[in-house]
Nucleic acid binder design. Structure first.
Lengths: 336, 336
DNA sequence: AACCATTGCGCAAACGATTGTTGTGGATAA
DNA sequence: TTATCCACAACAATCGTTTGCGCAATGGTT
């Protein structure tokens, strides 16, 4: 592909390719005179190193792989952006593999990472992933892997996620305590198979228990899409036992709920308090006086990428599990 | 990186690497017996081909590059998703390079594509890109490039974009004609440097001219951020010559406007008609009876990727400029 | 003047896979 | 029996770069 090679330069200058290589990499064994002439010719002829050859020779690819279950969501674009920023800073390239929430594609993607020789991998699992078997091989080969966001808790791997239990607890606790004093809490969560759903569910339940509210039937619902989230909200709203407090675990669910709110022309203010786990975009978009737990995809991506590079640089990191901060924003009206 | 190589298999079976290679690729020159034993051993030892070696030998990378100015927007996540789908279908990998709306990074990214030997490139330009000089070299080398969305019109390259002039014209025309009969139109557009802004501006002006409305001062504004879009809206709203029709060229601007609408508790319905160019997400989120021109990032991404692969497959494509469909949705309430 | 250390460069072997050419043994045909 | 052909594998070169080693000059030290 790239036209002019080191050999070409060498031929042209009547010197050995090895000298050209060293000259270009500023090796001390090469005289300044030669270095200069090589540089000049390289510039003139537009020499571009061939990465495939370098990778082959060095056994490195200068690339890190990012495997994500979905792209077009509230969360992942910012994750990608942060990761891209870090990898670029470190002089690496980013290969993005999309699993489309499909375990088979995830396995394929792990394969691709192996074949391409990516040096490290960042993974957010699909709903369908119940283990990380398919990454074992990569890990045996000593390639650092960091699992983030959607993870398997009881794995030995490095992982970094949102402290879902704590955050959900805090959220629900906020609605149940002094400020708002909700009496009848409900929650709409995401796919049951996801680690983040289970985390947040635990926190939700702990808060209810602590406030001595029975975690009875009909209080927790799982939505598998934004639309289903809206439908569940409608049912809750029309229920004879309409809750006065509602916990939503994600922006996707909030989206569904808000659509229903608009569609049914509901005025929530005096009827039902909402609290969400969100990056803040939707809450601030509607300019509602809504509390939320801020979950930053950007921060998570950044931390995951930094952790990966620490590992790549050979740092010994005894702790395998990390959490990022998730502040409670009491109102989406307050400026950040 | 990958542990076991063709050489290892060959040594183990006491045969030549070339035979192993052919056996694995099902070459007719290899007997069934040998093929089978090679396959078995390869499976058992978990042989994985080394892409760097293959790339080097074949001069191909199996990778296509995607260069985009921004990730976390309304538009690009869906573009990426579509492109990823197509490339995956074709058995290629996708390398995503982020220019962060910075011309220097864009040039860097072009470089990286060259070095890595990507086989084809998809590019959406930054605001700062005023030419495509930095892609010439890649094009000389015969690597197909497709520019999409944010392009340079008077370049000879392959390009595919939204028919912004037509679409904006249609949008404004819609507000000015029978249904709504707006009399005083204004427009909020994006960064003046972008091709898509200029396109849409032309369409806007043409529609005004055709309806014999002076395209006087104070009617067209350029917003460089979502927030600025909101501020311009506020000014327009409070202006003594408040427009009764408003054209917004993107979701980013609509976002800013809607925030203001909520913040100022404005009821637009009888005062000001809006029309937007949008992928439909925001209009449907608010459940407003809002017309919009649908601009689908997904469709654009898909078409761009397909065009690139047509080129890669050596098809002769005389036409260099393509447009995607942008239907007028008369109300965001109607189901799609 | 003989010696040693340094400097600067070439040589050649890798990295892992592919591929054109050559070689070998056995079957077939004359 | 001998010439011919085919099926199957081995050989070797190659992709572009890197790197350990060797070896000539060079210059400085006794």
């Amino acid at each position: 592909m790239s036209r002019v090679t080191i050999k070409d330069l060498a031929r042209y200058l009547n010197i050995n390719p090895s000298t050209v290589s060293r000259a270009l990499r500023d090796h001390p064994d090469v005289s300044a005179r030669v270095k200069e002439s090589v540089q000049q010719l390289a510039d003139k002829l537009g020499y571009k190193p061939n990465f495939a050859a370098i990778n082959l020779r060095k056994g490195k690819s200068g690339t890190i792989g990012l495997i994500i279950p979905e792209i077009a969501t509230y969360f992942f674009p910012n994750v990608i952006k942060a990761i891209e920023e870090v990898t670029h800073l470190k002089g690496y390239n980013l290969l993005i593999l999309h699993s489309n929430d499909n375990i088979d594609r995830e396995i394929q993607n792990a394969e691709i990472c192996a074949r391409l020789g990516v040096e490290g991998i960042l993974v957010s699992l699909t709903k369908e992933s119940s283990d990380i078997e398919h990454f074992q091989e990569l890990m045996y080969e000593g390639r650092p892997i960091v699992f983030f966001d959607k993870i398997i808790h009881d794995s030995l791997a490095y992982k970094i996620t949102i402290p879902g239990e704590r955050a959900a607890y805090e959220a629900v606790n906020f609605l149940l305590s002094k400020h708002t004093q909700c009496k009848r809490m409900a929650g709409i969560l995401g796919d049951e198979r996801l680690s983040i759903t289970q985390d947040r569910l635990s926190g939700f339940n702990r808060a209810l228990k602590e406030h001595q509210i029975a975690t009875g039937s009909g209080m927790v619902h799982f939505a598998h899409s934004s639309i289903e989230g809206g439908e569940i909200f409608e049912e809750l709203w029309n229920s004879s036992r309409r809750p006065d407090g509602l916990f939503l675990m994600s922006d996707e669910i909030l989206e569904g709920v808000m659509k229903k709110v608009h569609q049914l022309k509901i005025d929530l203010r005096h009827e039902m308090k909402l609290i969400v786990m969100s990056d803040g975009f939707l809450p601030r978009l509607f300019n509602l006086d809504m509390p939320y737990i801020q979950t930053s995809g950007f921060e998570l991506g950044k931390s995951a990428a930094n952790l990966l590079f620490d590992l790549l640089e050979g740092q010994n990191i005894p702790n395998h599990t990390f959490y990022i901060d998730t502040p409670l924003i009491e109102s989406s009206l307050q400026k950040r």
